[in-house]
Design a protein around this nucleic acid. Sequence first.
DNA 1: TGTTTACACTAGCGCTTGCTTGGTTACTAT
DNA 2: ATAGTAACCAAGCAAGCGCTAGTGTAAACA
Lengths: 191, 191
Amino acid sequence: MNVMNASPRRKELTRLAAQLFVQEGFDRTTVRMLAQEMGIKSGSLFHHFKDKQEILAAVIEEGTHNALAIAKRSLDESPPSPEARLRAMARAHLETLFTDRNAHVVALFEWRRLDDSAKAHLSHLRDAYEALWVQVIEEALAAGLIHGDRFLISRFVLGALNWTVRWYDPAGPRTPDELADELIAMIMPAR
Amino acid sequence: MNVMNASPRRKELTRLAAQLFVQEGFDRTTVRMLAQEMGIKSGSLFHHFKDKQEILAAVIEEGTHNALAIAKRSLDESPPSPEARLRAMARAHLETLFTDRNAHVVALFEWRRLDDSAKAHLSHLRDAYEALWVQVIEEALAAGLIHGDRFLISRFVLGALNWTVRWYDPAGPRTPDELADELIAMIMPAR
DNA sequence: TGTTTACACTAGCGCTTGCTTGGTTACTAT
DNA sequence: ATAGTAACCAAGCAAGCGCTAGTGTAAACA
């Protein structure tokens, strides 16, 4: 088995797996389906991954890692005003949600299928991402842009954003950035 | 097989199935697990339901039906002001989400497992429910309580509300009604 | 040149899955 | 008493599942 996590072949396989997991769901995706999609036989799969679980973990890790990187970069490049930073986070969230869509849908809806050790490892990444949100929202609260409980707000906002994968079509008339701006406008009393 | 949809035995079985589907997910719940939970043998299950799919459809139909009934009743009993009606819808949504929690979690996260004919049948119920939301939001827009695109707002709000099943604990310090009120406050500029 | 490594293959094991079959029991209506 | 029906059970089938064992091959390395 290949232990090097960043093998380019493995990365490509992870991408294909994410697509199948979204189409069929993790449980319904068989190792034979995965192998066929990758152009190999099912036995060969286990040269790259220890077991099926590990494929799932690789998909989710990849997606969450990217989300964290994009959010940090966006915040760094954003003007320092609380409103700009709030907008930057919302835009970054939708950007990563729809460029890396497959991985994120898997992360959102197949999280429970991870075994305990994978969950423990990955929840650190996820918590780091949520912490960015709470921080930006705290700044917005302090500036009087919004009102309410910071955890409640971050969860409502994340819920609204994550739910977009269920209905939003990036090929439609509205860009992800516009979508993010509309949400920010919705929760900001002041104009 | 029992064709009478409202057989009391079948209703009880549906309730138990909902619980297992939430715990394990639809795919991971085997007919043997379902049967054991119900105190019968796996073969006997197919006296009550044509196949495993039909159990899922029964769970989702029951939940969606209740949600629609509760929302309609809440609107009837609400004062006629747009703000009161908006608040009533949000409260009704969380009320049904957490009294009928199992059925709704299944409806939200196992919808894709339904076959096409079941989807077609049940999406009518769901559309009727969403239409109530769009209507109430239209009234709030007309009254100047909120601003923006009505479909966008209803989807953001429903997303935020539905996502609560992932983090909210009804046994915690906040009641569902308070939660609903906080969300309404978040999207209403005027105080 | 000989050895290792990466990657793929064939073949199939042991197990679980949804579902069917044929029959039994208890109750109810005639 | 008789017939009908709802609810259940024991047994098991055919298909599919994740995964393993053992082998082949070509490139990279010593």
